[in-house]
Design a protein around this nucleic acid. Structure first.
Lengths: 244, 244
DNA sequence: TTCAAACTGTGATCCCGGTCACGGCTGACC
DNA sequence: GGTCAGCCGTGACCGGGATCACAGTTTGAA
């Protein structure tokens, strides 16, 4: 039974508030809102509406005036830059609990990249004015935002370093490690196509294929039905450092 | 002596000093504090100490626990990543009014890069606890910080895009434009050595030289005693876009 | 099960740009 | 002035990785 505080609801609750509670539950798990008490999170939840996107749908486009924050509730999206020649650079892949769009909310500038659904996805949308008012009322969210921005900035700087200092196999090793879920003796990597990897590290699909083949030969990883398992973590780590 | 690349590193002792009002005047010009009234800015000014660094001095090192924010009061510093093989990547060049070190203050993680003085410089230092208390009292600074972080994140993403999508001459054209001061018909570029440019865009010094030579031949820029002038802005802009 | 669409593996070719080598400038400091 | 340390310009070489081409393998929808 759904309860508010200790008071059980006697009448069948409107669907809207049921889903409100579920959205509140969900938002509570997002790092941005983790410091808040339930009432404050509900304050945000009330301001959201859920929007569904089919695989391949464009959620925001570079240059758009940005006036909303999105939280991924289900599915997966990618943040991409697209060159005039059509080539794509994947800046980030976001899954459940991740959010995007805050830059435009903060500085009022246009969107700096495209965001595209890579799977059917459900996103919670929070409009600018609402968000801003809420943030001003809870400084905890402001800190949370700053922490998140810091994390991304460190990550972006790391990516710049890799692009300059590492060769393609080195960059491949790095994304493998970054996408590994920590299962002790042998670690799994969430499924990514070579094409996607290539766009994440600024390389061609073929070169990524060759690097993966090499890692298999050497026993660094093993691949079974497109599921990659990391066999020799430290070898990959060594390969992901600049070599002299 | 420890060296990174070809630049010898020197450590210079801190010197304490200077007038509170003059520091307040200076901080008032920094975007981060622009929204604050004079009393609030003085509050920050009271918490700072000025520290002098000789050219080549290391101000912070990657991996250090970071517990201070620095504002450049005079001189120039560079933010660099250093590979194990000694190669440097310049993430940013900071001059008067710029600041660095806030990431570690925000998220408590170690410093993510080295910062080295490229000229004799004076830095205002603000320690973690002091800074944090002040920020909590003035939300305007929190917004200012978020805006600054957003700006850097956009810039970093743009850099990633350039590294992947542009060839070396394209990246050279881009830094020229980014470092141009907007003098109408012909624009000047602040002095940067080819070596520095090369480290900013992930290229070799020689290739940058050749690109600059090409731009001169074509009449895009002219160089007189190491002072670069942009002659044909739109040609450079065209060159700084991905070509099909 | 079948068939199309998407993904992967691998060879051949070519070229951008890194590296090496070296000589010519420029400017700072005795 | 001389001399020394950084810069800059340019040629020669060659290797990592993009590109093209095509065959083999999965996947998933009907």
């Amino acid at each position: 039974m759904v309860t508010f505080g200790t008071t059980p609801l006697r009448f069948s609750p409107p669907t809207l508030s049921v889903s409100l509670e579920r959205i509140t539950d969900f938002l509570s798990t997002v790092p941005l809102f983790r410091e808040l008490d339930r009432a404050a999170v509900r304050g945000f939840a009330e301001l959201t509406r859920e929007q569904k996107f089919a695989k391949g749908a464009v959620i925001v486009s570079e240059g758009d005036p940005g006036d909303a924050l999105y939280v991924v509730r289900s599915g997966e999206v990618k943040v991409v830059l697209i060159g005039e020649d059509g080539r794509e650079v994947i800046l980030n892949v976001l899954t459940v609990g991740d959010h995007f769009g805050e830059l435009s909310l903060i500085d009022g500038r246009p969107r700096s990249a495209h965001v595209v659904a890579t799977q059917a996805s459900g996103l919670l949308v929070l409009r600018r004015a609402d968000f801003r008012r809420q943030v001003e009322q809870s400084p905890a969210v402001a800190w949370g935002l700053m922490i998140e921005l810091s994390r991304r900035l460190r990550q972006a700087d790391g990516t710049i370093g890799s692009l300059v200092l590492l060769d393609v196999p080195g960059r491949v090793a790095k994304v493998l490690l970054e996408n590994a879920t920590p299962g002790q003796p042998a670690m799994m990597v969430r499924q990514i196509t070579h094409q996607t990897m290539a766009q994440m590290i600024g390389a061609s699909r073929e070169t990524v294929s060759r690097a993966m083949a090499e890692f298999q030969d050497r026993g660094f990883i093993s691949v079974l039905r497109r599921q990659v398992t990391i066999v020799d973590r430290s070898a990959l780590e060594a390969r992901s450092r600049p070599r002299l």
